[in-house]
């Protein structure tokens, strides 16, 4: 477990340092994510080493955003004031995004003659 944690934290660390150092627009851990994919592709044995830990972490993923979620109590006023606008924006946009993604997938798959899976 410790070697896997060391590697995961190092990917995040490199990501944080690189994005800050180079002024990249993406969050450090996202660069860490990309490093993980690239490293596992170059060295498939690494995936076997990391998998038990990533599975545990991802199995409890939702727990990790509870503290940030509780922070909403500091912004209840904002939600009360703009609740309808926020709710409409979130709901309409989510429905549109699902529809756009699915329709484009369907048409491009048909156009490239790709078989369904």
């Amino acid at each position: 477990m410790i070697p896997a944690l060391c590697i995961i934290l190092s990917f995040q660390l490199i990501g944080e340092v690189a994005t800050r150092g180079l002024g990249l627009p993406l969050p450090g851990p996202v660069l860490g994510l990309m490093l993980l994919v690239i490293s596992c592709s170059l060295r498939p044995s690494l995936a076997g080493l990391l998998r038990p830990v990533t599975t545990t972490i991802l199995g409890n993923l939702s727990l990790f955003f509870v503290p940030a979620g509780v922070g909403v109590i500091a912004h209840l006023g904002e939600f009360r004031e703009n609740g309808l606008a926020i709710a409409l924006a979130v709901m309409v946009s989510t429905a549109l995004a699902i529809a756009a993604g699915a329709l484009v997938f369907k048409f491009v798959a048909k156009w490239t003659g790709e078989a369904e899976e």
């Binding site: 944690l5 995961i8 934290l9 990917f11 995040q12 990501g15 969050p27 450090g28 851990p29 996202v30 860490g32 994510l33 990309m34 490093l35 993980l36 994919v37 596992c40 592709s41 995936a47 990391l50 998998r51 830990v53 990533t54 599975t55 972490i57 991802l58 993923l61 727990l63 990790f64 955003f65 509870v66 503290p67 940030a68 509780v70």
Partner: peptide, 23 residues
């Protein structure tokens, strides 16, 4: 709660694994 919050970073890195598995 910050100890739980901290795990968001490693969790983001870990999201790379299912991506790798489905390459």
């Amino acid at each position: 709660a910050q100890f739980v919050h901290f795990m968001l970073g490693p969790a983001t890195v870990a999201l790379g694994m299912p991506l790798y598995d489905n390459l």
